[in-house]
């Protein structure tokens, strides 16, 4: 059992702030890379299946099953083929991001009113044009909400990835665990945990801004 020592924590921070910052950036980068990959896959899959009830249900169910699998189990399974570190982490995080993104893409595309689609068709837009310039922009805020949920999810999961030598703030948390009993254990674990919380809140705030900036004013309630 380690008592809390504020002065010690502040000293810890002042000595290691550049390491902490670097880990935070790593954490952010690995999450962003995974989100970007998941977004490409998720949006494309959503666009291909939104109007086909059975494939859409299968995709959503499969992504749901994926989300159920405990992260440590998935990370462990990825080590054999992909080794320790970044690759396994990115694959796992992408995997967990798919459900919210695919589901929201399908929901968003379905929510475009039929009258809007019919008038787009009546004006001579082909299926691709309709998708790109009508459906996708209207579904965009809902898709982004899915990405935002995925971001919250993966920032937390990325912390566990440090156990399989993944990048990011989880390293500090596990440093705390491995130095259990020493006076810095609490500082490590607390810094890592707080860092993840702060990062999650910052990313969430950033998403609110991005959604505001990239959504047509005509769609805002």
């Amino acid at each position: 059992m380690t008592p809390f020592d504020l002065a010690g924590l502040l000293t810890f921070w002042s000595r290691r702030w550049d390491d902490i910052l670097e880990l935070m950036v790593e954490h952010l980068v690995v999450v962003l890379i995974s989100l970007a990959i998941a977004m490409v896959i998720g949006v494309v899959v959503g666009m291909l299946t939104w109007n086909k009830p059975i494939p859409a249900a299968i995709v959503i169910a499969a992504a749901g099953v994926a989300l159920t699998i405990p992260s440590l189990a998935l990370l462990a399974l990825l080590i054999r083929p992909f080794g320790l570190g970044w690759t396994s982490t990115v694959i796992a995080l992408t995997f967990y991001s798919l459900l919210p993104i695919v589901r929201n893409t399908i929901v968003g595309l379905r929510e475009v009113p039929p009258s809007v689609l019919e008038s787009a068709m009546g004006m001579g837009m082909g299926p691709i044009k309709r998708m790109m310039s009508i459906q996708l922009p209207i579904a965009w805020p809902i898709i982004l909400t899915g990405v935002r949920v995925a971001a919250q999810l993966t920032i937390g999961i990325a912390a566990i990835a440090a156990y399989v030598a993944g990048p990011g703030l989880g390293t500090l948390i596990f440093n705390g665990l491995s130095s259990l009993g020493s006076k810095n254990a609490l500082n490590f674990a607390l810094t890592g945990t707080l860092g993840v919380i702060i990062l999650a809140l910052l990313v969430d705030a950033a998403f609110v801004q991005i959604t505001r900036l990239t959504t047509s004013r005509g769609l805002r309630a």
Binding site: P113, S115, V116, S119, M121, G124, I138, S216, L219
Partner: peptide, 30 residues
């Protein structure tokens, strides 16, 4: 069909204006 429709005006009861485009952009589609 798409080329044809660009030369046939089409108005429906639900109007179907594109909510994410301004009025000018809506009119400028075709």
């Amino acid at each position: 069909p798409s080329e044809l429709r660009r030369h046939i005006g089409y108005v429906i009861q639900q109007i179907g204006l594109f909510p994410h485009m301004t009025i000018a952009e809506n009119i400028a589609v075709v």
